[in-house]
């Protein structure tokens, strides 16, 4: 089992990364959420394999939580919310598909260069996971900045959270279970609140485009 997991680890890592990268040129809401779910599940499996490999007991709840909350509950919640609010399936962005992908790949390369400057490179659990976390977070940031509708911004935020979760894996930080539960529930609450707000935005303005959210200047 340990051997299989060790072999599959790179696969999980790659799926995790690619799901985030492929999310950038995706302009349909359902596909976006599916990619997110995919990425979360890959992350959960990655954490699980780390747990098994290093025999660190504290990672099991984390893996379970990621799988459950981020892989299942949140995508379901969001899909539900989007369906109920009647938002358009088509998402808006400042850049079209190809340029978005290009920018994301450029971001990946920049991250690779950046990694060398970090003082953690030596002490991290695994240099690859460190790279992954930063790359995925970067992709999330790009999604928040380049996309023009509220749902993509939410999903961008979720990708950032995924990246941070991977970062916690890389930096071998132990958080007591109770507090971890608290963190997960907070993330869940945050997402549900964001979903509620975007539902209200859709109701009030008739569109999920953030161009309608530009009235408060000065």
């Amino acid at each position: 089992m340990i051997a299989t997991l060790a072999v599959l680890e790179p696969l999980f890592a790659v799926v995790f990364l690619f799901a985030s990268v492929l999310a950038m040129p995706t302009f349909r809401v359902k596909s976006l959420l599916r990619l997110y779910a995919c990425s979360s599940i890959a992350l959960a499996l990655l954490i699980f394999s780390f747990a098994v490999r290093d025999a660190s007991g504290h990672l099991y709840p984390l893996a379970l939580g990621t799988l459950f909350v981020k892989g299942l509950v949140i995508p379901a919640l969001l899909t539900n919310a989007i369906r109920r609010s009647g938002a358009s399936e088509r998402l808006q962005s400042s850049l079209r598909a190809a340029p978005s992908l290009f920018v994301t790949v450029a971001a990946l390369l920049v991250t690779a260069l950046l990694i060398q400057h970090l003082p953690f490179a030596a002490s991290a659990a695994s240099a690859h996971v460190l790279y992954l976390s930063i790359a995925v977070a970067f992709a999330g940031i790009l999604m928040m900045v380049l996309r023009r509708d509220v749902f993509s911004q939410m999903v961008g935020f979720l990708f950032i959270e995924n990246g941070i979760a991977a970062f916690s894996l890389a930096t071998i930080v132990v958080i007591p279970v109770a507090i971890e539960v608290g963190i997960f529930s907070i993330v869940l609450l945050a997402v549900s609140m964001m979903a509620l707000l975007s539902h209200k935005v859709q109701e009030l303005y008739g569109t999920s485009d953030t161009a309608s959210l530009r009235e408060l200047t000065d």
Binding site: F120, S123, A124, A137, M144, V150, Q153, F157, I160, E161, I164, F167, S168, T171, I172, V173, V174, I175, A190, M193, M194, L197, S198, V201, L213, R214, E215, L216
Partner: peptide
Amino acid sequence: EAAWKYILLCSTGIALGLVGILMVGH
């Protein structure tokens, strides 16, 4: 609009704070 900007920006900021906290833990 204010609420949306508030939750998005503050959550992003606090997420960055979490990164910092994790680095301290590291």
